[in-house]
Design a binder for these strands. Structure first.
Length: 318
DNA sequence: AAAAGGGTCAACCGCAACCGC
DNA sequence: AGCGGTTGCGGTTGACCCTTT
């Protein structure tokens, strides 16, 4: 393995580049091209290692570099590409002319990552978060109606209360789905079918399901209404939707993964077979849930949900 | 006004892939 | 095939700047 060129010479300058150094590098490359980065510093009269020169040129001095804020389109594209490629910054950068891998990496770590976390989406997997902190924040939402009831005695705006109720409902569903998806408590449950049954029982709109992280469809649905979670998730799906329809330069075969992966039962090669299996699993799902709820001392909410018997399941599509 | 804390981003480091001998 | 040199990549660091207290 070749030794690092910068590690063997302590006399070489490190740290921020001065305008004079920049000018020397630009002048040299304009005259002679890049050539060998190892030889370049000496030839250009720079007391830097070749690696440092290459980095300075590719990330900062190159004439075709686009500087300034990332546009919304670029942001959408980065999120989409990241969901397909992961932390392959250089590969992502090839889809954004004028942007460097370093710039995209920084933008991801400082902006997008945080944004996704706030939306309740894991920036690594692009799926709803399952970490403890997030579940704790969901649990806070669960109590939103009770809190708003207390405040409503002091004339809380009705719209705010509705929003709190709605947020709590979404939190419940997301929590349920996360429990199912972690496959620790109920390993045999088909999450997609369970979600469908839950939707039926709650008379939820399709987007409400998506805001909660329920999806068995590659293409997100159009957004609908309000509440903090709803708006955030809506923005995320909207972003990915736009990018899906607008970006054709992602290599074939790299279709975007579903936010919540399909359960093994529904991921068969034969689509019909998968669908049938999901339907026939409906009753066993409810049996399992019923048992789960029976074990829960005060799970009245979940009981309410599940007591709506699945005797005549209507097809749910979203 | 000053200190503390947090955010941003250029630059560095170490590793791995690539290439030529 | 094996070795050494070079380049590219991704993670991390630290200086600088802005905001908050």
């Amino acid at each position: 393995m070749g030794r690092s060129p910068s590690s063997d010479d302590s006399n070489l300058k490190k740290g921020p580049w001065t305008p004079e150094e920049d000018q020397k590098l630009i002048d040299y490359i304009n005259k002679n091209g890049c050539g060998s980065w190892r030889a370049l510093p000496k030839l250009a009269g720079l007391n830097r290692c070749g690696k440092s020169c290459r980095l300075r040129w590719t990330n900062y001095l190159r004439p075709d570099i686009k500087r300034g804020k990332f546009s919304e389109d670029e942001e959408r594209l980065i999120i989409n590409l990241h969901s397909v490629l992961g932390n392959k910054w250089s590969r992502i950068a090839t889809h954004l002319p004028g942007r460097t891998d370093n710039e995209i990496k920084n933008f991801w770590n400082t902006h997008i990552r945080k944004k996704l976390l706030q939306m309740g989406i894991d920036p690594t997997t692009h799926k709803p978060r399952t970490d403890l902190n997030h579940l704790l924040s969901l649990s806070q939402l669960l109590f939103a109606p009770q809190i708003s009831n207390l405040i409503s005695l002091n004339s809380l705006d009705t719209a705010l209360k509705l929003q709190a109720d709605h947020a709590a409902q979404l939190a419940k569903i997301q929590l349920l789905l996360q429990i199912i998806n972690t496959n620790t408590l109920l390993p045999n449950i088909d999450s997609t079918a369970a979600a469908a049954a839950l939707l039926r029982s709650q008379n939820l709109q399709p987007f409400d399901a998506q805001a909660s992280g329920i999806s068995n469809n590659q293409t997100p649905l159009p957004p609908s209404n309000s509440s903090a979670i709803n708006e955030n998730s809506k923005a995320y799906f909207d972003m990915r939707n736009k990018s899906l329809s607008g970006s054709s330069d992602v290599e074939a075969g790299n279709s975007l993964p579903a936010l919540v992966s399909e359960s093994p039962e529904t991921c068969t090669n034969d689509n019909n077979q998968g669908e049938t299996q999901a339907n026939t699993n409906d009753s066993s799902i409810f049996e399992a849930w019923q048992k789960f709820m029976d074990d829960e001392p005060s799970g009245t909410y979940w009981k309410d949900v599940l007591d709506l018997t699945p005797s005549s399941p209507s097809p749910v599509s979203w």
